[in-house]
Amino acid sequence: MRAIQITEFGGPEVLTEVDLPDPVAGPGELLVDVSRAGLNYADTHQAENSYLAKQELPLVPGGEVVGTTGDRRVVALTSGGGGYAQKAVVPEATAFDVPDGVDDVTALSMVVQGATAWLLLRRSAHLEEGETVVVHAAAGGVGTIAVQLAKRWGAGRVIATASSEDKRALALELGADVAVDSTSPDMTATLREANDGRRVDVVLDMTGGAVTDQSVAALAPFGRLAFYGMASREQPSPIPPGKLLVRSTAVAGMWLPHAFTLPGRVVHRAMGELFDLVLAGDLRAVPGGEYGLSEVRRAHEDLRSRRSTGKLVLDPSR
């Protein structure tokens, strides 16, 4: 089968197209004929071994696929990679049947980005009706869905941040009330100004560095920042507990794999609700572009440069 393999860690240049033997599913696993693989910002960390889970070489990257296994059409999370290929083995526990009427790009948009947005708002930030929600990187995969869910779930105001006029226009089209420049040198002041001078209640942040520091400083009493990535590749400043006490604020981290350890099949519940919203016309994925295996380096360059919007996918047939 055709696949992308990494034999040394680094940037997009380490992604190499190869022919590999077909993988074999073991107990509790499914073999998926991959029609599309998802491309995520986390994949760029995986390629350079700076991800939360340490990687081992050689590696076929890719954490999500959609395709068929027997008579089932499924979207699934892989276990430690394997998605950038024509066939992939996935744990049965992280595979979800795709309803008729849901296309490949939408299915992939829901399994990582959609579930992440759902968990950030429902479990990490515990969004309450009427609260102000800030969505950083609002034109990205998680951001485009989080903007829609926050509005649907009763946010009083959704403030989107994005780096270009086109991205900010997309966030407004999806339901954001205000869209501001993510390159603002003083994000604390920018967020308060966008909220009519008031502090904000919820921040969804995948940027890191100064953006995180300044977003924490913009939180209202009992405000919550949910941190789920570090696209800037810069660590935020340490937050002493006293700094949280002084305004009764909270900072939570969220990594999707941990959600599968929760009782009550939380991720399955999230996926069911997300697919229902899609089928009802109340939630839409934003296609961001499709790449063939031979174009995977360009895909990673686009991800790293933050040029992309919405959901990027890989077509292993070309």
Rank of each mutant, 00 (worst) to 15 (best):
T207M: 10
V251I: 12
G82V: 01
G38E: 05
R36I: 09
A194Q: 03
P238G: 14
L52P: 05
A194C: 10
W118C: 06
W255A: 13
G70D: 08
G310H: 12
V102G: 01
G209D: 05
A137S: 12
S50E: 06
P91L: 02
A226K: 02
V147L: 12
D181N: 15
D177R: 11
D97A: 15
A146M: 04
S305D: 13
V134Q: 01
A125K: 01
T183A: 12
L120M: 13
V134Y: 04
A93S: 15
P287F: 07
R123H: 15
T116D: 03
M110C: 04
T207G: 01
L170W: 02
A231P: 09
A155M: 11
A155G: 03
H136R: 01
M206C: 14
L15N: 05
G292N: 07
M271S: 11
Y41S: 02
D43C: 04
A179V: 10
L312N: 06
L303V: 11
Q55G: 09
G67W: 01
K54I: 07
R307L: 09
D213H: 08
V178G: 08
D213W: 00
F9M: 09
V18M: 11
R318L: 07
A125M: 12
A210K: 15
I145H: 00
P241S: 14
R122Y: 00
V211Q: 08
G62D: 04
L77M: 15
A137M: 13
T94S: 08
